[in-house]
Design a binder for these strands. Structure first.
Ligand SMILES: [Zn+2]
Ligand SMILES: [Zn+2]
Ligand SMILES: [Zn+2]
Ligand SMILES: [Zn+2]
Lengths: 166, 166
DNA sequence: GTGCTACCGTTATATAGTAACGGACTGCCC
DNA sequence: GGGCAGTCCGTTACTATATAACGGTAGCAC
């Protein structure tokens, strides 16, 4: 398999996600090249969403010649494959939590999702709340719109930060 | 009154909105200065959301020395007062439709709202859908978050553009 | 007067994102 | 084999978006 191990047991989560991503790309007929894999790994290794230029700095360690187009092209690919999402409020990118969930549903891109962003610690949580998605679909339809993609991002305090400060 | 007319009857909508904005600022103890009023007028006059630099170009007609901080400072003020919103997906600004609705509720900033953006014609519609806001509050609370502000933006096709192309 | 605040002009800089060209490689057709 | 198209990526230059920092002015309190 992709990272040389036959099973997901005992693998670090990033490696498991990379394998899942590779499998998804295979099924989609897309090429997860070395560069794209490196960028994806950097996104996944980060606890918090990373901006394109932060990503670029990290990438330069392995790829000294990297420039903005290097990372933006990789990000575009990863977005198209649904392997990462963009957090619009932060101009930053984060791995999709659903990749590798084995949920079967092969949304090759853009499943409905919502982000919760802690303004204190920066932690960003991805939800896939059906009630929110449904309410939004209804409201959009009532307005006569046809929805193609939705951005739902909440800024606030996570449980830990709210507990400490109140 | 602000624009020299005693009543809202027969006034063009932008002038009426400017008067409502002035009244809101008075109540809030904030100063709607000439610069801020000019920027607000430019935002309100536009059919579509305007970027900061588009706004700057227009502003230069009346204020030749205007520079980026000129317009960004005015925009920050208008955002704080809830007179305009930022459309994150477009990095653009649009007037709040609720200003001057005489709804009484004096949300001096950040009422729950959603944007519907037509990718064809650029038309952007502001909703204030309660069901969406409520579903989002519930989901956020279930995740242990405390929400302060939410960005909800839908990209799609408006009725007119969807009807033509299907 | 002094000190303080809010507002704004001005210059420079930081951050985010794209356009455009060209080289390397691959697969395919003839 | 040669030619040709497609994909990927290195590279340069550039556009777009946003902010930092300093200084001046006007109003007001004391
Ligand atoms: Zn996701
Ligand atoms: Zn937190
Ligand atoms: Zn509004
Ligand atoms: Zn339209």
């Amino acid at each position: 398999m992709a990272s040389g191990q036959g099973s997901a047991e005992g693998m670090p989560p990033v490696a498991r996600a990379l394998d899942a991503a590779e499998a998804r790309c295979l099924r989609a007929g897309a090429q997860l090249t070395e560069l794209r894999r490196q960028v994806l790994a950097l996104v996944l290794e980060s606890e918090q969403p990373l901006g394109a230029y932060a990503l670029l700095d990290k990438l330069k360690a392995k790829r000294p010649g990297a420039a903005p187009p290097t990372v933006y092209r990789a990000l575009d690919f990863l977005l198209e494959q649904g392997l990462i999402h963009k957090v619009e409020r932060l101009n930053a990118f984060i791995g999709c939590v659903e990749v590798g969930h084995a949920h079967g549903h092969d949304h090759h891109h853009a499943h409905p999702h919502q982000f919760l962003i802690c303004r204190e610690c920066g932690m960003t949580l991805e939800l896939s709340d059906h009630a929110v998605a449904h309410a939004l679909e209804e409201a959009v339809a009532r307005a006569g719109f046809r929805m193609s993609r939705a951005t739902v991002e909440v800024e606030g305090l996570c449980a830990a930060c709210a507990g400490g400060a109140s």
